[in-house]
Design a protein around this nucleic acid. Structure first.
Lengths: 203, 203, 203, 203
DNA sequence: CATGAATGAGACTTCATTCAT
DNA sequence: TATGAATGAAGTCTCATTCAT
């Protein structure tokens, strides 16, 4: 009654996933009631079961469907870039940082929290998201090393260090950071990080 | 009737907290049943309630009592050190990394997961643990800057970057890392991190 | 799956209250399990919570909703009556006595028993039921005094004395009386009571 | 530790019964925890079990031991009296009314409340207390009838009517009356009651 | 005798899931 | 498809009762 009547049936699952994600992000998986998900999605509770057989399946669908597009976009952006490696690295991290307030930013934290109860999901995330993301970074760094723009160093060892501050900021903002006043903000963090990182990698 | 009634009266709360921490770490707060906590602690379910009025209180007690000693130890170790700043920084991070497998290492992840449901705990952690930890690092870096061992740079901006990889490794090992085979291990990570960081800070 | 899901949706709360009243009357509030209430109402335990947030709320709803209609009926009957005061008094008490076996007759006893735990309910009963009931009687007696049918006497002082035997019989029948064989029965009691009362009030 | 050290061991059960009675009177049987009884009696919880095998047994002991002395005293007082029947009746009811604030005054209400769960106690009370009390009154009234001081009437039918207002006041004071402001007080009630009753019985 | 820590059955309450409409 | 009333398994918490000291 509240949502527009021009609701395409196909949008239902998306709306449900979006509602679930918002609530999972706020309270966690277990503390979120399907009743609340339904209310937020503007539908009846039973309707959820027309699209997702189980609360756990809803969570799984959410992770699998809402996460990969993000990464794919990132990969395409990186592939399209053909400048010098330092600039590419800078752009890549900046793009990541820019996504920090998207709803999907809550997913990594949810996986951290629930990996004990969803091992398959943990593996999926490790292989399909983390590994691919690191590979992406690794390629850029390796290219820089090959081009002599970075000093000789193991690119695979550097990649996780390059994202670590972003990951930390991401997790913080969605959790503890919501309950403490200030917090510097990720731009400052990113600027300092790039300053240090590029200097550390300089030949 | 089968197990002895009185064992180590004073140790009870500690045993309960330890059992709860282990299970919370594995499954999360909500998915852990007090029945299981009791069984793991070798006591009856009702006994928990002699020491903790509520499951939530047990969680709170756990966080507050098991976390600060760690940090205090770190602070003392840092205070006792009086070498050159780079060495002190190296030691500090190494000490942190060495604690990564302690049971209490799961607490930060639990707080990330439950901060939405325990805002006071989130604030406590931010102020009593994170702020103090960052202050510790900031002091060491500032000392290095003052002594000309590090180039002029805002120490407070560098501190979070210095711990980020350790935090990330900590979270990873307790969650996703438990479900994927290899993962390099924190020694390599730390070595590369220190290599980069100290080079980035060199005058 | 065995019993029909939807029966008489609107009747549900009434059925639940009726079942609860019967069991509370038999065993008291605390000794009655919601499981039993559900079984007696022919529903599942959880269904109760669709209509009453708490066991205590069920009790409160029961008292408040099932008691006032009784009194209202009494007040209307009294208002409709326009004969001489002695006859009106006789009718009023007879009508009260006739309700002694209704399920709601257990409510006063429950309130006596639980007033310590439900002070608000005690006040509600005192003000909305007892005070109104006594006012009703007082009006009838006062009318008799004014008409010279009764001797001059404080009507408000007589009213409680006029109901006391009925109240006593009511409480007795629902409690101790269920466990001892004979007991005269309220008709005899009422007859003697009216004989004494009307003689005592005669001018 | 708080009670005087000159505590005779024999007083223990009495103290326990007194503590239990006070709490049962306030909250009812079920809502009273033995922990609280112990605390009020100034002893440890386990100690109760040295004297009473069960919470129910404590309740039973309480009723049986604390009630009969009251009645016995009443019977002796009545037997000692040898004046005219109206005066004896007046004294008898006045004596009853005077006991209305004794701790044991709560017992009848408890029996009303719990008779469903303690049928044997209900029978005990009916036979040993109510029946004897009514017999006492009946004898006095019968004597009055025989002496021509009262008009010819069935004494057994009058007896319950003679106590009803006292019983009602007793129950009220211990329950609802605790939660509403004024309430006239039993002296007025008794005065009016005796006025009516003696006039109704006059030859 | 007395204690009070410990027990564990049992009650209330929640909520994922089902199903008649 | 969609609904939402109904279900019942499962979890938290209470408290009468026990027993080693």
């Amino acid at each position: 009654m509240s949502t527009p009547r021009t609701r395409r049936k196909d949008a239902r699952p998306d709306e449900i996933r979006a509602a679930a994600l918002a609530l999972f992000a706020e309270r966690g998986f277990a503390a979120t009631r399907l009743d609340d998900v339904a209310r937020r999605a503007g539908i009846a509770k039973g309707t959820i079961y027309l699209y997702f057989p189980t609360k756990e399946d809803l969570f799984r669908a959410l992770v699998r469907q809402d996460l990969l597009p993000n990464l794919a976009a990132l990969e395409q952006a990186a592939a399209a870039h053909s400048g010098p490696a330092p600039a590419r690295l800078r752009d890549l991290l900046a793009t990541m940082a820019a996504r920090m307030d998207a709803p999907t930013a809550a997913i990594p934290r949810l996986i951290l929290a629930e990996s004990g109860n969803f091992p398959a999901l943990a593996r999926f995330y490790a292989e399909e998201v983390v590994a691919r993301g690191l590979a992406l970074l690794t390629r850029v760094i390796a290219a820089g090393v090959a081009a002599g723009e970075f000093r000789p160093i193991d690119p695979a060892a550097v990649a996780p260090l390059a994202v670590a501050p972003l990951v930390m900021a991401l997790l913080w903002r969605g959790s503890i950071g919501r309950h403490v006043p200030a917090t510097p903000g990720p731009e400052t963090l990113l600027a300092t990080h790039l300053d240090l990182l590029l200097r550390a990698l300089a030949p």
